Simulated assay, not measured.
Amino acid sequence: MPSLDDNHTGARIREQRRLARLTQRQLAARLPYSYSLLNQVECAARPATADFVAAVARVLQIDVTVLTGQPYVTELQRDRLAELVRPIRESLDLYDLGPNPDLTVRSADQLMAGADHLCAEVRATRLRNAARELPGLVAELTHSAWSTPSTEMWQALASTYRTAHDISVKLGYYDLSSVALDRMAWAAERASDACLGAVRQYMRALVYFREGEYGIGQRLIASGHTVVGQAAKTREALAVTGQLHLGGSVIAARADDEAGVGRHITEAHRIAKRIGDASEVHWLSFGPANVALHKMSAAVEMRRYDDALKQARTIRLPSQLATSRRAHFLIDQARTEMETGHTEAALKSLVEARRLAPEQTRYHPAARDTITGLVHLSRRTPDTLSHMAAWAGL
């Protein structure tokens, strides 16, 4: 049987359980999961799914990141990405300092184009490029929004804060992502932009989804609907409303609320049918394809892997779908293939995700856990899987 070192989620669960002075049976008795599964996760014979990790973190009263081990410091340093985080953190602290007289600033049109460009870079999974450019753009936009305030400037600044959140999440810096979302709310309020405010609530909901606090996540989705309800019934507002329903669907799935999943997917489908592909609206990728992807993701979250795999095999991704979303689908597909015994297909899906979005795949918790699971399911580890595990730092 192949082996990994002790730098995996299961080993960290074992360590934290022992620090809490609990036996495996004592911890399992407090979880909605079996003793057998806990035992297999701790020895890395089964991957630690996101919902399992969240449940353990709640019982042990610790942060999820203590168990996931994010960010992956060694790989981040090797990829020279860790050094890009500090300037982002510093740029987020400029928000209330007013204009900077020593700063040379580009024109308003160039700055707004820059904000859109960074959104595009993140969705193309060029995280390094986006992380390198972000701090300077935040500084320029902060100066311009204070010195010549306008709705457009505040909107562009809110967009760059949103990009800071996206980069932070993808690299595992969740504390930084929360700061970025607070800054986004601050700028969206000054822009008097209800749609941006609702997008921010959607992103906050996903933070609590990751932390396993599904009740708060559902309340934030409801709050987002209230906020966007203040906007005119435009295509933009409809797309944001639809995306809120998609966020609500995966939170309901993690909470094992099948009826809630059905309601959210039905509403999102109705909106997508009305407005068609709206990928350009706030870079949300909303449209019929994303509704299908979230329906599959909901099946994965409810551990209905046969149903999820059946859906995956019928999904045809449109050419305009963001690379980040395409890679996420492949990672979900790999998990369903592994769970249903299609290990060779799962490895192929991961290899394709890596080809499309290497930075995103390398740091994606589900991809890393699926790689770990495949290693332990393989009696003889194929060279491709060995290379994949080494590449991910496992």
Rank of each mutant, 00 (worst) to 15 (best):
M1V: 10
H8F: 13
H8N: 13
H8Q: 15
R14C: 05
E15W: 02
R18K: 15
L19E: 13
Q24F: 00
Y35S: 12
S36A: 12
V41G: 02
E42T: 08
A45R: 15
P47D: 10
T49P: 01
D51T: 15
D51Y: 01
V53I: 15
A55K: 01
L60A: 11
V64H: 05
L67Y: 10
T68Y: 07
E75Y: 00
L84K: 13
L84T: 08
R86T: 15
E90S: 12
Y95Q: 11
N100C: 12
A108T: 13
L111S: 06
A113T: 00
D116K: 09
H117E: 08
E133Q: 15
G136R: 02
V138C: 07
A139L: 02
L141I: 06
S147C: 06
S150V: 02
E152N: 08
Q155E: 15
H165W: 14
S168A: 15
K170P: 00
G172L: 00
S177G: 10
R183S: 11
R183M: 12
W186Q: 04
R200Q: 14
M203G: 00
Y208I: 00
Y214D: 04
S223V: 00
S223N: 13
G229N: 10
A232C: 08
T234G: 07
A237W: 05
T241I: 06
G247N: 09
D257V: 03
A259W: 02
R263E: 12
I265W: 01
E267W: 00
A272C: 07
I275A: 08
G276V: 07
V281M: 04
H282N: 10
L284A: 02
S285W: 06
A292T: 04
L293S: 12
S297M: 13
A299Y: 03
E301G: 01
P318E: 07
T323K: 14
T323V: 14
S324E: 13
R326E: 07
T336M: 10
M338F: 08
E339V: 02
A345E: 14
K348A: 14
E352A: 13
E352I: 01
A353V: 04
L356A: 09
A357E: 02
R362E: 02
H376W: 03
A390V: 11
